[in-house]
Amino acid sequence: MTVCNARPGPAFPVPGTVILMSRATLDKDPREVASMFDGVARRYDVTNTVLSMGQDRYWRRATRKALGIGAGEKVLDLAAGTAVSTVELGTSGAWCVAADFSVGMLTAGQARKVPKVAADGTRLPFGDNVFDAVTISFGLRNIANRGEALREMARVTRPGGRLVVCEFSTPTNRLFATVYKEYLMQALPRVARAVSSNPDAYVYLAESIRAWPDQAELAHQIAGAGWSAVRWRNLTGGIVALHAAYKPQR
């Protein structure tokens, strides 16, 4: 099945090029972010499991269930990284493609037998109205122009199709939120030094989570990009939130 068209893609680093970049900055230059994720790719999955205390598996299952996908449907998993999330989506019987702008991440997941495409979230290399559903997990935060990315996701989704954004968010309990922010800035980088192949990148992770909008603001931004019936569900006390929406029917 071919879903790509000739839309121009991003200028990715040439395979084998060494870019001396340990972490990205919050202006989220695409080359810096891609380079940073290339640097953490080797131990990315195990690091996520350790840092989330195993909750990453639960978040992936919840994302799949929220999409409501089934056999015969076409699903885009954007910012899929090593495609572990794409494999989870595929247990539904849907045809799922992993897309990411880090070639290193896609390469690290080469053993996972799902279609993979190098793609910039603001210029997706797919035709209009191709997918029944699109999802992005922990990746929208790393795109400089999230409104443009949300509009691109709408463009490639058929009318009536679904969107689910799985992203770190704001804990609902104020006391817990304070403890959580302290963990992000203090404990998370220290734990990452023990398990990650590029621990400095997790300083960016902590900073980007702290700078991210809360649940209501993100819902407003999703609606502003053309999606309808936007709602959210908190997971793990609001550490993560699932935002779901539909592309309006014509």
Rank of each mutant, 00 (worst) to 15 (best):
C166S: 15
F131H: 08
R174H: 15
A225P: 02
V130H: 03
E182C: 12
A71M: 08
A79P: 00
L20M: 03
W95Y: 10
G237I: 01
A108E: 12
Y58I: 15
M1S: 11
E148S: 10
E207A: 11
G109P: 09
T91Y: 04
G104T: 10
R23F: 05
T135C: 12
K113D: 15
F37D: 01
G68M: 04
L51D: 01
G121A: 14
D27L: 10
P171V: 04
R146F: 02
R57M: 13
P115V: 08
R141Q: 08
I69M: 00
T170V: 13
I209A: 04
M36R: 09
E88N: 07
V14D: 07
A223T: 12
I136F: 03
E152Q: 14
F101K: 02
T82L: 14
F168C: 04
R57F: 14
H220A: 13
A192I: 15
V46E: 14
A177M: 11
L106W: 06
L106G: 06
L89S: 05
D27H: 06
E182V: 12
T49F: 07
E73H: 02
R64A: 12
R31L: 14
E207M: 06
A229R: 09
P13H: 04
R7L: 12
Q55S: 14
A154R: 15
A94E: 02
V117W: 07
A192W: 14
A245G: 10
A206E: 03
F12T: 05
P10I: 07
G127S: 14
A79V: 02
A187F: 05
T178P: 01
S85I: 08
A66R: 14
I222T: 00
